[in-house]
Structures are given as C-alpha cells and as structure tokens.
Design a protein around this nucleic acid. Sequence first.
DNA 1: TGGCTCATGTAAGCCGTTACATGATTTT
DNA 2: AAAATCATGTAACGGCTTACATGAGCCA
Lengths: 193, 193
Amino acid sequence: MRKLSGTSGLLLGMISVKGRQTGYEIKRLVEVSTRFFWAASPAQIYPELRRLESDGLLTSAEEPQGGRARTVYSVTETGERALREWLTESSAPGFELRNESLLKLFFADALPAEEQIELVRAMRAKHEAILDGIRKATPAYRPDRQFGYVSWLYGLGLHGWIVDWCKQLERDLAAGSMPLGPEEGDSSASRAG
Amino acid sequence: MRKLSGTSGLLLGMISVKGRQTGYEIKRLVEVSTRFFWAASPAQIYPELRRLESDGLLTSAEEPQGGRARTVYSVTETGERALREWLTESSAPGFELRNESLLKLFFADALPAEEQIELVRAMRAKHEAILDGIRKATPAYRPDRQFGYVSWLYGLGLHGWIVDWCKQLERDLAAGSMPLGPEEGDSSASRAG
DNA sequence: TGGCTCATGTAAGCCGTTACATGATTTT
DNA sequence: AAAATCATGTAACGGCTTACATGAGCCA
C-alpha cells in the first residue's frame, strides 16, 4: 500500500466523513475548512481523485445532472483502511511554514522606525484577514464532528495569538521601548509566552 | 527591476546584514535563524546567488582558501536598493502553512479515544522539537540586530502557544470533557484566546 | 441576454526537497 | 587514518499555483 500524501489523506478523509462527493464539492469543503492549514486547488484535486481510484481506494460513478457531466466518488473498504493507517502511522507529521512577513521583519533593522512599524501593521492585517476567513467558516456544531470544531478553534487561537503579538510589538515600537535586551523580560517575556 | 522572491530577499538580506558571504556561510546562517519560518537548501542557494549576480544585485570574487574553491558575494548599490524595495513594497506578504498534524486531527472523530490523544501527543512532540531547535539557536543580542532577536521571540512564542494548546486538549480528552459545545466557553474559549 | 455557479479538466512553470557527487582541509 | 567540516554544485522528482479552456444550467 502506497503511503498517502497529505493531500490524498485530505481527499479520502473528506469523502469518508461527508459520504459520496464530487471533486467540486470537495473543493468547496476545503475552502471553508482545511484551507487555513492545508489548501488544495482543482489542479491537484481532479488528477489525485483519479489516482486514488486507480489505486483502488475510491470508486467513481458517472452521475450527470441534466447535460452536465458529474463524477461522484466513494471510499472503498481498502480506502477506509488506508485512511486509518494514514491517521495513525507514527511517522512524524510535517509542519511547513513560509512566513514572508516575518522574513522581512527579520531584516527590518536597516529601515527607518516608521517603516518598521508599517511592516508589523501589514503583518497584522494579513492575520486579521485570515481570522475573518476562519470566523466566516464557523462549522455547524455536530457531536460526531468535534475535531472539525477543534481545528477551527485552533485557527482562531493561533492567528489571534499572532495578531496580539503584532499589537504588542507595535506598541513597543511606537513607545520607542526597543532596544529590549534579553534580560528585560517584561513585554518581551509575555510575547514569548 | 525584477520583483524579488522571498528566497532572493533572504540571500540579499543576509549578505547585506553580515557583509561578504559565501553560499556555504549563508546556508549555515539560515540554519540557525530563518529556517523556522523560511528554509533554504543548497540546491536553491547556489543557483540563486548566480542569478542575483547576473541581475547585477550581487558581485562575486573568487577567494580560494588553499586549494579549496570559494566564491564570496557582496551586495551592489543596485542590490541594496532592491532589498529596500522588497522590504517596503506594499504587496501582501504571503503566509503559507502546511500542518499535517492538524489535518489528521481534523479527521480524528473516527478514531478510538486513545488514538485521538496519541495524535495530539505526536503534534505536541513535533512542536517541542521545533522549540528545542529555536532555543539552541539563541541569537547573540546586538542592538543593531534587534529584529533578529524579535523574530526569534516570535518563534518561541508561537510554538510555545501551540504546545500549550496541545496540552490543554490532551487534558480535555483524557478527562472525557469532550464533547464541548460551542456555547460552553470555558477551556475551549481559553484555547481560542 | 448576461452573468453566476456548477463541474471538470490541462499546460506551463515555479519552487523546493532529496539524494547524490566531488574534492580539499581540519580535527580527532 | 578516519571522520567531520568546508565548499560547491547537479539531477530527478514532487507538489503546487496560475492561468486558461470548455460547457451546461440557473437566475435576474
């Protein structure tokens, strides 16, 4: 059994949880749920569904609606087993981050004070926009989908923390209370948690 | 002037801040600083340095040490300007995250309770390892490199927050205090910040 | 009639990783 | 003498984004 990639686990998982799905339906589901920590575009979804089918983890049925083509996928027994294996396999799950705001902040010493603050403001705006997106995607609470709710809370909490961190840094910069040495553990310590 | 990618900004920034550098030196610098939010491998660094040189943003000098080839790069005037433009350009800086632990947690409802907790433990272990790496990379404090220190604090704070979130969830799961409805805003509210 | 949503897909390209290869020099 | 570090690179591949293309059905 080929090891599942994150994206194939995502597709398999969505179909398993929601039942029979088209690629388009999965795309919409992803947009209001996992996209904040695992995105997937049509150019990934459609070919990957076919691959999963040819591997025997999915079956498909052509169910056109009127003259409109439509392919509905279901998870096979083998697919369910593969999903559970993926969920519980003990290989270290990846955490990949590319944060360009922070990269710029890293080099901000060369900038004038006003532009330093502007960098932090732009970073905060970014995460406030993400927070908006997460809030709009509030999951309907269902006792059989608790972990959907839990990961939604994670998004709120994480980006909320970042926004607060930015606000604190903006205050410090505006007050000119930088330089802060590593031993002056007041606001910096609160930021470091 | 070609718009700089994050990675070219990184290279330009490192050479600008630290002065003349070889690719190898940059690789080591990245490993103890930006790699927690912006990684770069040799297979990116060496070709990109050449591209930046052919674009006139860097100059190189062959400075072999004994019989060992060595190419030292410096930032040109044009390069310094490009770096400042990149730092202050107002295009929204990207934030990309791929969190496979959280993706698995999202689908955890189907698992037995013990395996749910195991998932959270694995997630916490991951971030504790990252925290270790960040702590080991403590930057020497220098007043002219405050933002190097600030972004280090960010890493500590962010991953510290995640570890705490995992611990809280582990407690909730162990106590069986899930299901938690959206209106019972005690521990869940504290997690959401 | 025009625009939106449903629905499926492809092509080109960027970005990045893993793994490998080479060889000198320094340290143990 | 062996192992680690310095130093530079390439080949193959995987994964993902952007942009495009097609066409049906639905609604104002």
